[in-house]
Simulated assay, not measured.
Amino acid sequence: MSSTVKEVSVQLPKRFDRPDEPWHHYLTIDLIWYVLGYTLFHPFVSWVVVLCLRAQYTPYENIELRVAMAWAMLMTAIGIFGIVSDRIAFGSPREVDLAEEVIVITGGVDGLGGLLAETYGMRNANIAVLDTKKVDEDEAEDKGILYYQCDVSDAQQVEAAAAKIVDDLGAPTILINNAGIVQTKSILDSTAEDVERIFRVNTLSHFTTLRAFVPYMLKEGRGTIVTVSSVLGHLGAANLSAYTASKAALLALHQSLRAELAQNPDAKEIKTILVTPGQMGTNMFTGVKTPSNFLAPIVTPAEIGKDIIRLIEKGESGEVALPLYSRYIPILGSLPVGVQHLVRKWSGMDKAVGRIDPAKKSMNEKR
């Protein structure tokens, strides 16, 4: 395909369709942390403060200069430690040229997967989407995406779709396992069929797509695998038992995949990305109210997608965890059980699903 950027008509959302919110609604801990990351906690800015003090002929023995220098050295050390840690954990980045890559996205008609697919489609990348939803051929052509109607919970359908993708686009080198469904039922109200369906789509489909596409990556000697899990995989939640259990399984699957790839000499250039978002503003959790908009804001697919695309195109492995609390949730499990209980109680997370309108308590499809 041509490497030129395709012009696509876009209709922006109407402002008056959204409820007016007070200014403090948009003030979140994530925003504060973001600003601090580019100011007080940034090594370059920290050294600029030192230089400014010296420009004012501040003596080295003055306490303010000593504090500024100590802070700048601390921020520099933390930054270097982070870079070294990532290199040890994930290795060197691989070279990525979108013209030479074939991208496969499961559940890519709408939500996060749809955003990623359309973004790469606008950039004329070789993009294939697996989804149960059918897309009109004219719409697919306008978006520059090849859609394959496929139920990823069915291994035979995935294998057949994989063969078609290879014939149409070439060997897949980037796999984004995004398909997922949720059902808001208690454990006692769930049937065996409900739980099985959720696990087949959310968990077993990952095994199927990995078996279908990773052999091509090994043959090509390069690739990127994105696993979309959830922060609830670390936490669990009332009335979301099947969903949270299926996402927790993906956390273990991701680590097992990394371990197996590390043992394969042909997989040195295959990168892995784990995505553990908090509540996203998609149809999947329509009606769920976040316990705290300040501490646990709802993230948009664009925010998650931006970080996924950045890692993919830099050829790096890594983790994407938004909002901020998602990065530190694993620490909760190391705290005393009493503290864990109080955090869950104060956050109100186990009551969030119970507040959904009963009319909305139905199976929500792909992200």
Rank of each mutant, 00 (worst) to 15 (best):
residue 53 L to I: 02
residue 53 L to K: 05
residue 53 L to E: 15
residue 53 L to G: 09
residue 53 L to N: 14
residue 53 L to V: 01
residue 53 L to R: 04
residue 54 R to E: 14
residue 54 R to P: 09
residue 54 R to H: 07
residue 54 R to A: 15
residue 54 R to W: 07
residue 55 A to N: 13
residue 55 A to Y: 13
residue 55 A to I: 01
residue 55 A to H: 13
residue 56 Q to C: 14
residue 57 Y to V: 00
residue 57 Y to F: 09
residue 57 Y to P: 00
residue 59 P to G: 15
residue 59 P to E: 15
residue 60 Y to P: 00
residue 60 Y to H: 07
residue 60 Y to F: 10
residue 60 Y to K: 03
residue 61 E to G: 00
residue 61 E to V: 03
residue 61 E to M: 03
residue 61 E to R: 09
residue 62 N to Y: 02
residue 62 N to H: 05
residue 62 N to G: 01
residue 62 N to L: 01
residue 62 N to C: 06
residue 63 I to N: 03
residue 63 I to G: 02
residue 63 I to C: 08
residue 63 I to S: 08
residue 63 I to P: 00
residue 63 I to V: 13
residue 63 I to W: 02
residue 63 I to A: 12
residue 63 I to K: 10
residue 64 E to P: 04
residue 64 E to C: 10
residue 64 E to R: 06
residue 64 E to A: 06
residue 65 L to V: 01
residue 65 L to C: 05
residue 65 L to P: 08
residue 65 L to I: 03
residue 66 R to T: 03
residue 66 R to H: 03
residue 67 V to Q: 08
residue 67 V to E: 04
residue 67 V to G: 01
residue 67 V to N: 00
residue 67 V to Y: 00
residue 68 A to E: 08
residue 68 A to W: 01
residue 69 M to D: 10
residue 69 M to T: 15
residue 69 M to Q: 14
residue 69 M to P: 08
residue 70 A to G: 13
residue 71 W to E: 08
residue 71 W to M: 05
residue 71 W to L: 07
residue 71 W to P: 08
residue 72 A to T: 01
residue 72 A to D: 05
residue 72 A to L: 04
residue 73 M to E: 05
residue 73 M to L: 15
residue 73 M to I: 03
residue 73 M to D: 05
residue 73 M to H: 06
residue 73 M to V: 02
residue 73 M to Y: 09
residue 74 L to W: 11
residue 75 M to S: 05
residue 76 T to F: 15
residue 76 T to V: 02
residue 76 T to L: 10
residue 77 A to E: 05
residue 77 A to G: 07
residue 77 A to D: 04
residue 77 A to R: 04
residue 78 I to G: 07
residue 78 I to H: 12
residue 78 I to V: 10
residue 78 I to S: 10
residue 78 I to F: 12
residue 78 I to W: 13
residue 78 I to C: 08
residue 78 I to Q: 11
residue 79 G to M: 11
residue 79 G to C: 10
residue 79 G to S: 15
residue 80 I to M: 09
residue 80 I to G: 02
residue 80 I to N: 06
residue 80 I to L: 10
residue 80 I to R: 00
residue 81 F to S: 12
residue 81 F to L: 06
residue 82 G to H: 13
residue 82 G to Y: 09
residue 82 G to M: 13
residue 82 G to L: 12
residue 82 G to I: 00
residue 83 I to P: 00
residue 83 I to C: 07
residue 83 I to N: 00
residue 83 I to E: 10
residue 84 V to A: 14
residue 84 V to D: 06
residue 84 V to P: 00
residue 84 V to C: 11
residue 85 S to F: 05
residue 85 S to A: 12
residue 85 S to D: 11
residue 85 S to N: 07
residue 85 S to P: 00
residue 86 D to S: 14
residue 86 D to C: 14
residue 86 D to F: 03
residue 86 D to I: 01
residue 87 R to M: 11
residue 87 R to F: 08
residue 87 R to L: 15
residue 88 I to K: 03
residue 88 I to W: 07
residue 88 I to V: 10
residue 88 I to N: 04
residue 89 A to M: 15
residue 89 A to E: 13
residue 89 A to D: 12
residue 89 A to Q: 13
residue 89 A to K: 12
residue 89 A to V: 03
residue 90 F to D: 11
residue 90 F to E: 14
residue 90 F to S: 11
residue 91 G to L: 04
residue 92 S to E: 12
residue 92 S to Q: 07
residue 92 S to P: 07
residue 92 S to R: 08
residue 93 P to S: 00
residue 93 P to D: 05
residue 93 P to F: 06
